[in-house]
Design a protein around this nucleic acid. Structure first.
Lengths: 196, 196
DNA sequence: ACCTGAACACCGTTCAAGT
DNA sequence: ACCTGAACACCGTTCAAGT
């Protein structure tokens, strides 16, 4: 990469970090280029999609997340590891408002620039979940996609200003569901109660 | 209202129902007006905001929801009533993809056209929740805002194509958390596990 | 090899002008 | 009393032209 290109890349990333922090993942890319004092085409060549830009912004956090999963697996109890890592995931996804929606779309789209990060996150979670299930401290009927979904849902709740004040509490509620030993109190009957 | 205005209003609503069903709550309003064969200004006078249009689309569903809450309170056990109504709420919010985000913003914004519907939904849920808590079949540390948040989160999950296949299962998981008798297995200690 | 910005096809929103 | 659609200020995306 030419040195002027390198400089543009880094400056764009720094400006994007500011703008996306302020306005969320749906921030105007035009605005980013403008504030970076760079042509719109320059931004598009360095980051061909919004997802590519977000991936660049989140990459280090995601790498740390995968690393952290391995550490926790070695150092903590299955329950502690799963809960603590889940919490970190949510904080990570919540780093930029609105990012979680793009991530959720990316999990099923291999062409998305965010696909790799999402799959890595799901896989790391799968290991911690399986370990907790083997010890009987997590619901047995959860698959890794469920964990990813619940983490996403909590991250989404955190993004909503009206729910943010109760975010920690809502985390505890969902965490307690993940950690239940049993699948449910009364099997599947609850879904269609007798009308009278 | 003049009869031609009345006709426009109804036709707009019918076209909007189609378009929003197809494209979600973020559908182009221009597109709605175009497909209705009506000037853009006509749409804006009948529905001054996107929220107003959505409110008109969802009004009957919301009314039915409030009614249903009262019925369930009279006819079902506290647990059955809460779970069954929660399920209906989610189905209702899921009626139009992306609608839940607008509803969540509306809960704290009295000027939104969706505010009333959201508050009504939250209040109806509060009654059913309190009834279940009084009987000791729902977590005691939940407030009505928490129930609204969990319903919203599940509706959001349903909106994501990648999560839709597990939607019922995810409902069961969260429902089991709401219905837990205890607040959690080990109090608040779980949130900061010893690092080693 | 990289950068620029005009061009294109869209938005939401407003409001003067028409009927 | 209601309707229309041009006008304005924005988008995302592409790509010919420049350095």
């Amino acid at each position: 990469m030419r040195t002027d290109a390198q400089k543009n890349y880094e400056h764009l990333l720094a400006v994007a970090r500011e703008v996306v922090t302020e306005q969320g993942a749906q921030a105007s890319l035009r605005d980013v280029a403008r504030k970076a004092g760079v042509g719109l085409g320059t931004l598009y060549r360095h980051f061909p999609t919004r997802e590519a830009l977000l991936e660049a912004l989140l990459r280090s956090s995601f790498d740390a997340l995968t690393e952290r999963a391995a550490e926790l697996e070695a150092s903590s109890s299955p329950e502690e590891a799963l809960v603590s890592w889940t919490q970190r995931c949510i904080a990570c996804a919540h780093e930029y408002r609105g990012a979680i929606s793009l991530m959720v779309s990316a999990i099923d789209d291999p062409r998305s620039a965010l696909h790799g990060s999402c799959v890595a996150m799901k896989s790391a979670g799968a290991r911690l979940l399986a370990r907790a299930q083997a010890e009987g401290v997590a619901r047995a009927d959860l698959v890794s996609a469920d964990l990813f979904a619940l983490i996403s849902a909590l991250a989404w709740l955190n993004d909503q200003p009206s729910f943010a004040p109760r975010a920690e509490h809502l985390f505890d509620v969902v965490a307690s569901a993940i950690l239940s030993r049993r699948a449910s109190t009364d099997g599947g009957k609850r879904r269609s109660p007798a009308p009278r």
